[in-house]
Computed example of a mutant assay.
Amino acid sequence: MNADTSGGDRIVLGDVEIIRIVEWRGPFGPARGLVPGAGAEVWRENEEWLAPDHWAPEGDSAVMALQSWVLRSAGRTVLVDTGVGDGRERPESPQFHRRQGDFLGLLARAGIRPEDVDVVVNTHLHADHVGWNTHAVNGEWAPAFPNAEYLLPAADDAYFGPGNGYGGGRSEDDRLVYEDSVAPVHRAGQAVLWEGVHRVDENLTLEPAPGHTPGSAVLRLASRGERAVFVGDLVHSPVQILRPSCASCFCLDPAGAAESRRRVLGRAADERELVVPAHFGGAGAAEVRREGEGFGLVGWAEYGEGYGEGLRR
C-alpha cells in the first residue's frame, strides 16, 4: 500500500459533526475477486459512475479506501473503526503485514488527540477495523485511547476469542488480531460487550447486521431529522448496492450478509439515510433508492457545511 492520506473531511448531520479520516486509498485487488458473484457485465455497464473512484477498468481492480470516522455527538468524541494498526504481524494478509502508518498523526491533524476520544466503536473484529485499538508501549500492546470505552460486538468477541479457538482456527491472523488489538483492551478494563440494540447516546445507536462476521453491526445516526447509517463491511463496493445478493469474498456467512444488506439498504432507501460504508473511495458515502430487485444511487455525499447542502445529485 502506498500512502494517500487526508487530514479529515467533514460534514454535519443535525447536531453531529462527522470527520472522515483516510489512511489510504487506491487499487486493492481484482474487482471480481472482491465480489465474486458480480459478473463482469455489472462493472462494465456501470463504468460511468464506478470509475475511477471505485473501479480501475484498465486493470479490472476494485478501488477502495482504508478509513475511519470520528463523530462529535452529544458532547463526546466517538471513533468508528480503527484501521489496520502499526507494525502488526499479519502473515496471511500481505496488504496489512507489518504496515507502518500514521493514524494518530492523521487524527491530530484533524484536531483529535488520543485522550479526547470517549468511545471507540468496532463495527466488527476484522484486522482492518481494530488495528489502532492499541499501540505499542514499552514493547507491549496497550489501548491507544486511554479514556475511551471500546464497544465490541459480543458475538464477534465470542467467535474470534480464545474460547472459540480464535475464529475456530481458520486463520492464524485471527488469533494475532485478537491478541494484539482486542485482548489488551479487555485487560485494561475498557471493553464493553454489547448485544441486541445498544444506544451510544441520544443520536447514535448500534444494531446487529450479522453475516460478514457473526457480530457485524451498523451504527445509526438520527439527529434533527437527518440520518446516516455506518455499515462497516456490509457493503465493500457499490456493485453490492446494485446486486445486494452478492457477498464479498471476506464474508463468513454470505447468505446472512445478503439478508442484512437488503434489510439495511431497504431502510436507508425508505428513510433517506446516508449510507456510509467502511471502504468506499471517492465521496465515501451515498444516498440510495429502491430499484428493481436491488438498489440504485441517488447521489454521493459532499463534505461541506451539511448533508442538505452537500449532496451531489
Rank of each mutant, 00 (worst) to 15 (best):
M1H: 15
D4W: 10
T5A: 15
V12Q: 12
E23M: 14
E23W: 03
R25Y: 14
F28E: 10
G29K: 04
V35L: 13
P36Y: 11
A40L: 13
L50F: 15
W55T: 08
A56T: 11
G59T: 10
S61T: 02
A62P: 11
V63E: 09
V63F: 09
L66R: 10
R76T: 15
G83P: 13
G83V: 08
V84Y: 14
G87M: 04
R88H: 10
E89W: 08
R90L: 14
R90I: 05
P94A: 08
Q95D: 10
D102R: 12
L104C: 02
L104H: 08
G105A: 13
G105L: 11
R109T: 14
G111H: 10
V117M: 12
V119L: 14
V120R: 10
V121N: 15
V121D: 14
L125Q: 08
A127G: 15
D128H: 12
W132A: 05
T134W: 03
N138C: 01
E140H: 08
P146R: 13
P153K: 05
A154T: 00
G165E: 06
G169K: 09
E172S: 14
E172M: 12
V182W: 01
R187C: 05
A191K: 07
A191S: 13
L193N: 05
N203R: 10
L204C: 03
E207I: 01
G211P: 09
P214R: 08
A217D: 03
V218F: 02
R220A: 04
V231E: 02
H236N: 14
S237H: 15
V239H: 05
I241T: 09
L242Y: 05
L242E: 07
C249E: 15
R267N: 01
D270V: 00
E271R: 15
E273N: 12
L274N: 07
V275H: 09
E287T: 06
F295R: 03
V298A: 10
E302V: 00
G304A: 09
G310L: 00
